[in-house]
Amino acid sequence: MDGTLAESESLHLKTLIAALARHGVEAGEEMHPLVFGKTGREVHALCRERFGLSVDFAEWSMYRARTYLENAPGLVPRPGALEVYRAAKAAGITQAIVSNASRMLLEANLRALGIEEPSLVTISVNDVREGKPSAEPYERAAWLLRLAPEEVIAVEDSPTGARAAIAAHMRVLAWPFDDEGAALFPPQAQIVRSPRELARALGLDPAAF
């Protein structure tokens, strides 16, 4: 979801910067590579260690979630992402969304993108014991789709997510934002650099993108 379908990474960073400022810590864009792809609990632990914060996770996450939800209606899709998503659906490809975000934030993103539907399989960090890079979120998605993990293709914008899908024995299409990001993916991931390349890798007609 985050970064693959929705351009929401900047909003997650905004909530982090605001939460840190609330506790007297000035931070900015330099935090993004440190928290990219991590769960909320992992980010909280990192900030406690890095900045000596004493705030507990419940208070921290409540503030960040409130800030996120206030801004979520303004989210936009990643260019070309929903077109590929809808083309795959039209082609009969079964899909699931696997996120390290909480259930509340994941559903806010679905609403913002207009892709809520009763039959859509979605996995949030609340649905598993361990988030990405554990294989568990992807394994659960495959189970709910009634597919073997080896039958599934994962599309990921983050190396953390790619490692999770590889651990689940899935084929991985890595869709980074730039060459710098592409260099961070494990070698097992196949890099795609545009919606057209993504469509081709999924067996869709690339001429439509």
Rank of each mutant, 00 (worst) to 15 (best):
A65W: 00
R86S: 10
E156Q: 14
A189E: 05
R200D: 10
G181Y: 02
G80W: 00
L145T: 06
A101R: 01
A27T: 12
R163S: 12
E180S: 02
I17H: 11
R86C: 04
S119N: 11
A88P: 09
A87F: 03
T122E: 01
A142N: 00
P206V: 02
K38C: 11
L147H: 13
R50W: 10
P187M: 08
Q188K: 15
D178V: 08
F36L: 15
G203Y: 14
K14M: 01
L53M: 09
A91G: 11
V98R: 07
H169F: 05
E139N: 06
A208G: 00
A154F: 00
D179E: 15
A165D: 14
A174C: 08
A18F: 00
L145W: 03
K38H: 15
A58T: 15
A18I: 00
D127Y: 07
R103N: 05
A141E: 09
L11G: 01
A164P: 04
E117P: 05
N100T: 15
E136I: 02
P133A: 11
E83R: 08
T15N: 02
E42S: 01
N126P: 02
M104H: 10
R196D: 08
G161S: 12
A208H: 12
A96Q: 10
V98L: 13
V121S: 12
L198M: 14
A101K: 04
R193H: 10
K132F: 13
P187C: 07
L16H: 13
V25E: 10
Y138D: 06
V155Q: 05
Y85F: 15
S54D: 15
R41P: 05
P195N: 04
R103M: 03
P187A: 14
